[in-house]
Design a binder for these strands. Structure first.
Ligand code: ZN
Ligand code: ZN
Ligand code: ZN
Ligand code: ZN
Lengths: 192, 192
DNA sequence: AGAATTGATGTAATATTATTACATATCATT
DNA sequence: AATGATATGTAATAATATTACATCAATTCT
């Protein structure tokens, strides 16, 4: 068994999940991001983030738990919830309240993660907006919507309410799943 | 045991909760509202709505369950969840996702429930905006914010996303709880 | 009125999501 | 190596929500 024990600083030898090259790059990037914030990207956290990045729809904590069990370790709920807490705190993922499930922050998925309009610290970490499709289960983070936050800020200002975080969740049917969208892209494959 | 079995159409003899006159009026109003929508305001539903109206902060399903137990009947979770579903469907309450708890729709609490800018059917039923105070636990429904919805509508339009419902939850510190709000109203009493 | 239909409730069991508490291990520094 | 801080393992339990099926009550239709 040639399990090479090469273990570079923050990407240990636990890649039994076969994360794609693209996702591995995203994980690499995430590791740098949280290193910059004084956080450590440990194997558990990396695995959880990788699984969330791999999924095409929001993933629940116990889904993650099941997937993690397939790989040597036998984790319990706290393992997953701690990893999720870490990833949330560092702005790498978001929680969709309506689904009790998690999605990657769109930062990590864009190929040019530099010039994002919302820095993870301020805007994204504690505030995000999502479009949730009831048909395909897909979730889109609205990154181009500072307007929403601006309106909310102005409302809070009027009411002397100090905003610490905000979430906007819009549920409906996405373009691809729209029945009569004369372009017929055909509804995306159902989640399950 | 003189359990009178008198049971008038939609305000039965189950007022062992001592709902205030004001809340009884609101319940009356709610009964008319859902009658207009072809719904029946049964004792269970009335009690649950009354309890939610009575509370000063969002109430969880199991809180309601406990409170209901004090009054003769011995309900189980489905009883509460069914009542909640009904009240949600008729736009009489809202669910705060972040808290897994429920608040009355602000309609019912305003003394002049006629001229509300959002009819229960269209805007309010499926969409609402809230300010949630971390200090006192109070929740304020932002009824004067069609702007938020407008912005969301416009974004959805651009993305060909058909909006069916939207929720906005802003968490922070309310005016009354703000530490140095030179007016010193003093932070509202903690929820518990 | 009596039967059929629908809507609402009772009841038991179970599913899903999340946390607590405490022991152990790992990492960073001295 | 000793220390202190951070991270993980483990078992139990809490909190929230749903399923399935039986019973009951109101409505409608002979
Ligand atoms: Zn984001
Ligand atoms: Zn879709
Ligand atoms: Zn409302
Ligand atoms: Zn407050």
């Amino acid at each position: 068994m040639n399990m090479q024990t090469r273990t570079p600083p923050s990407s240990p030898a636990d890649n039994g999940y076969g994360f794609s090259d693209r996702i591995q790059r995203q994980l690499e990037h995430a590791a740098h991001l949280c290193a910059g914030q004084g956080g450590r990207m440990t194997p558990q956290r990396r695995d959880v983030l990788g699984l969330i990045l791999t999924a095409t729809t929001p993933v629940g904590a116990y889904d993650l738990l099941e997937q993690l069990k397939t790989s040597g370790r036998k984790p319990a709920p706290p393992t997953v919830y701690r990893a999720l807490d870490f990833l949330l705190e560092h702005g790498l993922i978001h929680r969709i309240e309506r689904l009790s499930a998690f999605v990657p922050c769109t930062h990590l998925q864009q190929d040019h993660p530099h010039d994002h309009s919302h820095g993870p610290a301020e805007n994204c970490l504690h505030s995000a907006q999502f479009l949730i499709c009831r048909s395909c289960g897909g979730v889109t983070e609205i990154a181009d919507a500072p307007r929403v936050l601006d309106v909310l800020k102005s409302i809070c200002g009027k009411k002397n309410f100090t905003m610490q975080s905000a979430s906007v969740e819009v549920e409906g049917v996405c373009e691809d799943c729209a029945p009569a969208s004369r372009g017929q892209k055909g509804p995306a494959p159902a989640p399950n």
